[in-house]
């Protein structure tokens, strides 16, 4: 049986009396690729941040690899939302990727040969090795996103969390980006948050819809009622071909 990677048990997150996440119950297992869709402000990023231990639940319990989120950070890779960094920051692609090894290297130590080898491999995986000496802001949006994926996987995570990874990427880059995720899928469980329903439906094995409450049936299907409840208005779903439908025929 596949190991349980993430377990949410009746998790609530409230901030200033406002419930961001309500009664979340969720299990993600090894090799799962879960897509989380939902309206903006519905708590998608907060959900990822609780898995990372950046946000503490007000109520309920979260286990990541059977331990607290805080203690499991070494096994989790994270690609934060695009545009959160200063594009003029004086840092090279190489240093950005190496940064992802820091949890393994430890305080007060220089990066080891092993760290450098891992950074080299990660850059190869995302096909960005030739850009290693470029300043991060001089790359295109799609290239930057690849570098951030490399930074997330360089520490050999067993779980990868992606927050709106396709923002700021053009369509061609987006397809390449999804091919890359296909490759990573074999090695780790992935949770991807996105408002791009079409894209999510092509890639993921399981899908959930989040608008403070989580609508999830441990499958790739959502009922029209789920979507209406989550978005509070009828949602047009454009599925990419029959095998990738989000909705059952109805």
């Amino acid at each position: 049986m596949d190991r349980e990677v993430i377990v949410f048990k009746d998790v609530w997150v409230s901030y200033d009396g406002l419930h961001i996440l309500k009664e979340i119950n969720l299990v993600v297992k090894d090799h799962d690729f879960l897509g989380v869709i939902g309206p903006n402000g519905g708590g998608k990023s907060t959900l990822l941040k609780t898995i990372l231990g950046l946000v503490k639940p007000t109520k309920g319990e979260i286990k990541v690899f059977g331990d607290t989120p805080h203690n499991s950070r070494k096994d989790v890779g994270y690609v934060p939302q695009y545009s959160l960094f200063d594009p003029n920051f004086p840092i090279t692609v190489w240093d950005v990727v190496l940064m992802g090894r820091m949890g393994h290297t430890g305080l007060l130590k220089r990066y080891s040969e092993k760290d450098k080898k891992a950074a080299l491999d990660a850059l190869k995986t995302v096909e960005m090795l030739e850009y290693r000496d470029w300043q991060i802001g001089s790359l295109s949006g799609g290239q930057q996103q690849r570098v951030f994926i490399a930074r997330a996987v360089v520490g050999d995570p067993k779980l990868l969390l992606l927050d709106e990874p396709t923002t700021g990427i053009d369509t061609v880059m987006r397809d390449e980006f999804y091919e890359m995720l296909e490759k990573l899928k074999a090695k780790m469980a992935i949770v991807m948050v996105s408002h791009d329903i079409g894209a999510v439906s092509v890639l993921v094995d399981k899908i959930a819809c989040l608008n403070h409450t989580l609508y999830y049936h441990n499958s790739k299907e959502l009922t029209p009622e789920d979507l209406d409840a989550a978005y509070q208005c009828p949602v047009d779903l454009i599925a990419h071909g029959v095998p990738h439908r989000v909705l059952k025929k109805h």
């Binding site: 950046l54 994270y78 959160l84 840092i91 950005v96 940064m99 820091m102 949890g103 007060l108």
Partner: peptide, 22 residues
């Protein structure tokens, strides 16, 4: 000199640095 790599990460992306367990 001792915290060069940590300070670099902290300045570039503080939240990510926290996520790394630093």
């Amino acid at each position: 000199y001792s915290f060069y790599k940590e300070f670099l990460a902290l300045c570039f992306d503080e939240e990510f640095t926290e996520v790394l367990g630093v």
